[in-house]
Computed example of a mutant assay.
Amino acid sequence: MRTALRPIMVVVAALFIGLAARDLARRWESGAPIDIRPAFVALSVLPLALGLVVLGLAWAFILEELTGRPIPRWPAIALHIESQAARYIPGKVGVPLFRMLGAPRIGATSAEVGSSFAIEFTSFIAVGAMVGFGLLAAGGEQFAGANALIGRWRLPVLLALGAVLVALMTVDRARAPERVRKLLAPEGRGPLMPARLPLVHAVYSLTWAAHGACAALAVGATPGAAIGGSGLFVLAPIAGFLAMATPGGIGVREALLSVGLAPAVGPAAALGAALISRATSLAVDVGGLLIARLLCRRAAPR
């Protein structure tokens, strides 16, 4: 099954990446002309590349907490990077499935990898929302509209997410409800989530904020607007991932960025920043996938 599914998933992911690239080119050509600063476009790639490694490292930490044994760092990071390409499969089911298929490569079971995805997803959403909302709140009057849109439900959502994080980091898994234990299949004792995981995910969120600031500067935003709007680039991938039907959050992410950035940089520049963000993230995903495959082939026993 693994042998049959892997090439199918790769082909489907590549197909959606190609369609996304074509759609980006079409939308870019139909938009109003804007002045692009290539240096900032190139600079925006670096935080995304760092983020791939940071996110993979965070996943290795989760597996070590669940299994109670060391997980090989670079093979786990490589598998995580490979699975990220599966975001472009509708329904996002390819992400956990791809990791479960590669579980033997890092000495883990499919059940352990599946459990780790649920914990990773919780921390990723909670920490990303906290960082994104925090940066957006510091953006001032330029982003008052975006803050007003989310202000009604921001506080209760953040409190609920924070409570879930604290529970996962402090409550012994043996005391978790039976349904939770059966679903996650955790072994041993101790919390399900390592205390360092939210910190690592906070670093990952900041890499997206840095990327967003560079993308905004690339279309002529002032430094204040670029930094203030960087929180939108943290929240947009979360919104795109939660939109399960859309491959890679295509459309959802761009809509949130275009609407949120428009008051600060103008509609045309806001769309330009959104498209730059999508194009560079696609390039990093593809480049990371190719590098991860190369590393895995070199590390494989001959």
Score class of each variant (00 low, 15 high):
A4H: 07
R6Y: 11
R6C: 04
P7W: 02
G18P: 09
A20E: 04
R22Y: 10
D23A: 07
R26K: 14
R27N: 08
E29F: 05
A32Q: 15
R37G: 11
P38H: 11
V45M: 15
V45C: 14
L48I: 08
G51K: 06
L55M: 15
G56K: 08
E64R: 15
E65P: 07
E65C: 09
E65S: 13
E65R: 14
R73P: 00
R73D: 01
L79P: 06
H80A: 08
H80P: 00
E82P: 00
Q84L: 12
A86N: 05
R87C: 00
I89A: 11
P90E: 00
G94R: 05
M100N: 09
M100I: 14
A103C: 09
S110D: 10
A111N: 12
S115L: 02
S123H: 03
S123V: 14
M130E: 05
V131Q: 02
F133Q: 03
L135V: 10
G139E: 01
Q142V: 07
F143S: 05
A144E: 04
N147W: 04
L149Q: 04
G151L: 05
R152V: 12
V157F: 11
G162E: 11
V166H: 02
M169L: 06
M169C: 12
D172G: 08
R173A: 00
A174V: 07
R175M: 02
P177Q: 11
P177N: 10
E178L: 04
E178Q: 09
R179I: 14
R179H: 10
R181S: 09
R181D: 10
R181P: 05
L183K: 12
L183I: 10
E187T: 15
E187D: 13
R189F: 02
R189M: 06
M193K: 02
R196C: 03
R196Y: 01
R196H: 02
P198W: 13
H201A: 09
H201P: 06
A202V: 11
Y204W: 11
S205C: 13
T207N: 00
A210H: 04
H211P: 01
H211Q: 12
A213V: 09
A213C: 13
A215C: 14
A225S: 13
A225D: 15
I227V: 15
I227A: 14
G228M: 03
G228D: 05
L232C: 04
L232F: 10
L232H: 05
F233P: 04
P237G: 09
A243R: 03
P247A: 09
G251S: 12
V252M: 05
L256R: 03
G260P: 03
L261I: 04
L261D: 03
L261N: 05
L261W: 13
P263I: 07
V265W: 08
G266D: 00
A269T: 04
L271E: 07
G272S: 04
I276D: 00
S277T: 10
S277A: 12
R278F: 01
T280V: 09
L290K: 02
L294M: 08
R297Q: 14
A299K: 08
